[in-house]
Amino acid sequence: MKQSYLFIMFCTLMFLVSCKGGDDSIIQEDTKTLSTGTVEGKVFAKNGTKPVGGALVFTIDNKNHVYHTYSNADGTFSLVAPEGNTTLHIQTGNGLNFRTEIPVTVKKNETITVAGKDSKLNQIAKIAYVEGSYDEIETIISNLGYAATQISYHDLKNLNTISQYDIIFLNCGSRNFTQTGTNTPGNDLEVFDNLSTFITNGGSIYSSDWAAAYLVGGNKNVISCGLGAGFINYTQICFSDSGSIGMYNNCSVSNTAMAASIGFNTLDIQYDQPLWEKIQYYDPLFWEVLVEKGNEALMVRTNKYTNKNAPKISVGTSLNNNHMTICHHTPNGNMITLTINQNAWSAHQAHGDNMGSCSGSTNSGNIYYTTFHNHASGNIGKTGPILEYVILNL
């Protein structure tokens, strides 16, 4: 009887061990049964020179278990994975906009190195921007090796035009405001409705400084807090053009993942123009603060925006039609946002994964807002890596 009891206990233990699988990290039990090797390399932007930190690097085995790591601030990574032929996935953000897939053969107890020419992040997204007076996020995009299409303020009035893009960058001081016939974007409900629909259906936007007017309404800029006609309510965020020329010393990168990706958590920010938009208040349940000075938010983002009345439309490039974003649940209780082929969804769902991003309760795109941008002189110091991070993680 005692032997039978011990045998049952042994079988139960073996069942529990096998259920843990090899998901996400080679746990101790798996090292007894799995033959593994190491894949190492360095993630670059498309220009082949800019290292990319914080990129998700992973493989998926034939049981849809995920083995993952992240690139360091210098772009280097080292991943332990089961031996055999597999695909190495490299992604930033949720993986819909920038990703790379590399066939590799993992060899038992050996380390293989991925060539730098193969570990460049490819641009999947279609990117657009509205020209600014001197804020030129498109220059940073181009320097990273990626392409963006210039659109006009008038194009924002055409939902069919903007829906072909995945990301829209709204530069500070957009020149096209005065070409609308209204002179006040705050009265241009068509633009705000289109941006609202675009984001609700998965498109992402970035706006900086005076381009806060795209969010909450206003003229070329937001003069002060008050009722506006933008698509974001003033109770969720409020701006005023009360910033002055000067240096903000000892600012903090408050998001730990972002700090790890760019390699620093403090910086000095030079505001070289007067009347820049200060964030007077924000809803902390709606916005995540990424950079701040004391209790003053300088950079925020959200993926919680949604408009239940917005029409359902297809947004973005057709290259993403067979891919989807999921929230992958690891055995140790962590969650990872990644993009997979739609054909693999049923197996991941069976593991307990969820559709959509792990952060936020909607399938909407991201909204990034920064009080700072690239200076007229082009000397932006440590805000440069931050803006590069924004581009790759929208």
Rank of each mutant, 00 (worst) to 15 (best):
P103E: 09
F239H: 04
I151M: 06
K20R: 11
G95H: 08
Y153S: 12
K42Q: 15
P274V: 00
S196N: 06
E292T: 07
D188W: 03
I162Y: 04
I167N: 15
N62F: 06
H68T: 12
D74Q: 08
L195G: 04
E190Q: 15
T182C: 09
A211D: 03
E131S: 15
T59Q: 07
K107A: 07
L6I: 06
Q150N: 13
N374S: 11
K312I: 09
S357W: 11
E388V: 06
Q123N: 03
A212N: 03
D24C: 09
Q28W: 14
S174P: 01
M355G: 05
I112Q: 08
Y129K: 03
T180C: 03
L227H: 02
G203C: 11
G360T: 05
S252K: 09
Y67G: 01
V291Q: 01
V216H: 00
I313Y: 02
W210A: 13
Y153Q: 13
G356L: 10
L319S: 13
G316V: 04
S152P: 05
H328W: 08
A257W: 10
F58R: 11
S119N: 10
S71R: 09
G95Y: 08
I340S: 02
G181L: 05
D209F: 02
Y368K: 09
Q123T: 05
E288G: 07
T33I: 15
S204L: 10
P185N: 12
S18R: 08
D193Q: 12
V289S: 02
C11A: 14
M335S: 13
R301H: 10
N265C: 04
I279C: 00
N219H: 09
E296Q: 14
A297H: 01
S142P: 05
Y129I: 01
G356E: 03
R99Y: 13
E131L: 15
V80Q: 14
N379D: 13
V43D: 03
N187R: 11
L79R: 02
S318W: 04
Q349Y: 12
L121R: 08
Q164G: 02
N233E: 04
N194L: 04
F58E: 02
K293Y: 04
A259Q: 09
A259K: 07
C11G: 01
A213R: 05
S174N: 15
T370K: 08
S174F: 11
D30L: 15
L227S: 10
F7T: 07
G294E: 04
D61R: 03
G217F: 00
L267W: 03
C11E: 02
H68P: 01
L170M: 14
G218N: 00
G263V: 12
N158T: 11
T38E: 14
K32H: 12
L290Y: 11
T235I: 10
F177Q: 14
L215I: 00
N295M: 02
T302S: 15
R301I: 06
S174C: 11
N219T: 12
T200F: 06
L56C: 06
T182P: 00
D272F: 00
A147V: 13
Y5T: 02
N250K: 08
I205S: 08
I262A: 06
L298D: 04
